[in-house]
Amino acid sequence: MKTERVWLAPVLSALFFAVFVGIWHLATVKPVGEVVVDPEYAALIGAAAATGGQSAMPGPGDVASTIWQHLRDPFYDRGTNDKGIGTQLVYSIGRVLTGFALAALVAIPLGFVIGMSPLVYKALDPFIQILKPISPLAWMPLALYTIKDSNISAVFVIFICSLWPMLVNTAFGVASVRKDWLNVARTLEVPRLRTAFRVILPAAAPTLMTGMRISIGIAWLVIVAAEMLVGGTGIGYFVWNEWNNLSITNIITAILFIGLVGMVLDSLLAQLTRAVTYKE
């Protein structure tokens, strides 16, 4: 009974997609208007303006052909300010992974210490609570001013936004390891360091991985905004550059790619989480 219905979900997904595209198409279908101005004037303005309207939203067909253009040549390089969407995504992913790795290097050991010692936890808690809700982009002017390098500033912003979820989750995971297990370890006279690695780490790993998964999601959200601010390279810069050109088709394309990459990053960490999860 159940096996027969496996196909149902994908079909429903496809149906939703078709309905969405259909509505989009109907909403953006261009009225074939009369050209209301003289031909010399019409040649100087956009097609929509020539018919007395404003330039409209692109339809699904336009976007699909733009996506195809980008997919055909994702890594072109036509100068400092014009690189293919693939190259831009590679820059962004590079920044995110660097910032994320640095944050993990700091957050996981620190989270361990905080989780294992209630005293340190209480002492650091006010700072964490104040720093955690700050929008990472608010750090940007400060970073640019002090670090004096836009690339490192962007990585710093990723670092600071990835730090808190990992730190808090690690601390929480470590602090909530079942007391029985710790007591067993103590009874067996396992050294502290060994306890940390053989008992606490595996027990806290699922929570820790959840923290990392939240972090990478936030980091990918933030990189687009950060790159729109500093410019130069990256998918955020691509969006900004196309906004500059008011090219909605390219912006929609970029949005789609941002979503796809975000999904891949998230599912990678989800796989990892599954790998370290244990069953009681």
């Binding site: 400092t80 300010n81 002017p141 836009s150 601010l229 410019g231 130069g232």
Partner: peptide, 14 residues
């Protein structure tokens, strides 16, 4: 290398 920049405040800071 002529580098496109996002805004005046950024050009000043860079």
């Amino acid at each position: 290398a002529v580098v496109k920049t996002a805004g005046w405040a950024v050009i000043r800071d860079k």
